[in-house]
Design a protein around this nucleic acid. Sequence first.
DNA 1: CGAGATTCATGTGAAGTATACCTTTAGGCTTAA
DNA 2: AAGCCTAAAGGTATACTTCACATGAATCTCGTA
Length: 406
Amino acid sequence: MDGVNKELEQIFDSFDKNFIFKNKSVLQSNYQPNEILHRKEYINQVASILAPLLRGERPSNLFLYGKTGTGKTLSMLYVMKELMKRVDKIDALKLRIEYLNCKLKKVSDTEYRILAELIKKLGGNVPATGLPTQAVYSQFIELIDSEDQLVVLILDEIDQTVKKISDDFLYNLTRLNQDLSKAQISIVGISNNLTFLDEIDPRVKSSLSEEEIVFPPYNALQLQDILNKRAVSAFKEGVLQEGVIAKCAAYAAREHGDARRAIDLLRVTGEIAERQGSKKILLKHIDEANEKIEKDKIFEIVKSEPKQFQLVLGSIIKLVEDKKGEAIFTGDVYNYYQELCTKNKLEILTQRRVSDIIQEFDMHGLINAVVISKGRGGRTREIKLAMTNQIVKKIKEIIKDSIDCF
DNA sequence: CGAGATTCATGTGAAGTATACCTTTAGGCTTAA
DNA sequence: AAGCCTAAAGGTATACTTCACATGAATCTCGTA
């Protein structure tokens, strides 16, 4: 018994001796800063478009674009918070703002579920299944229309949804106002995909994006500001080696100015420094962190891939290692893959499919596959691994867990 | 020797199929009036 | 009668397969110099 306690004490002790973090949550992705840097202009735009709400008028539908980590959601939520503060002071005004991230797994699947989720947020109740979609619609409308009120629906990552469902859903939403007698509704769509609006029905397009705001990526300097600000409350004083912030910002700026990425990088860097028992965060920790994030991403992909994919990847790795330096081709991979399938008693997919799978790996950046023509030797893909040996080794371990190869 | 035809091994697109997972519907059962 | 549940029926997305055709440079063919 005593032994266990000592062990625990040690763990707690080492936690206590944490030199690095003061408040790590500041660097976690759901953290809401109370001031948003370098987005003032856009926040103002959003605010001025939504301002009519305060007079009880329906604002235009609004559409926000921008790549990931450009502060769209953050800005929107901020404006929403400020608006609500203001509205609370005005008695006569009934305003509801509902935020829904369409990408969340439990929601994203269908029109039905999005509506169900919205209804739940508005205080209604729908069974998880069973009702006709039309019935859910009318319940939704009834719920909104039950009072004299203004409703703003913020639909985040809406492009994800529309890819899965048709744009009828959006069309219906934009026309909701016609079915309402007392209440009025505005829609704010947020999309990561800059070309999203080009892909949807023009009727929807015109009514959904009465106003549009594009959020540009942050540049390296702006990222630095953001990181600096967060670092102050996240880290203990003096733990940052000079240049750490700048380097983090530079890394993220290279990746289309994604602030989320920058913050993640900074956090992971801190975690690595902490784990190594370092008293300061050094530049070299950033490289490790960057690699770790990269690695995690790859592992995530590999792990979530079905067995067939893992077999193909296993075949590729095996062949590349065997043929040191020499390029390998689709045919080789397919042959070896067939062997592996037999060995593992799995069904053999057609070459057509394997070809697609290889292409997918290429898209994920796990391998480099270029289509070449070998003249009379035919056409094929020339395949190379695009990962460091370390990562390959790890992947082999992951694959080995589920499949007998190598 | 060179232009054009041929060839190889596989890429690529379209369309069809199997499967799993949903939604809808309808019928039956329960409940409450 | 209304509400609820469930099983069967109908839909739809996904992951493949099948079929058919496209590719593009090495190689072959054959006419010509």
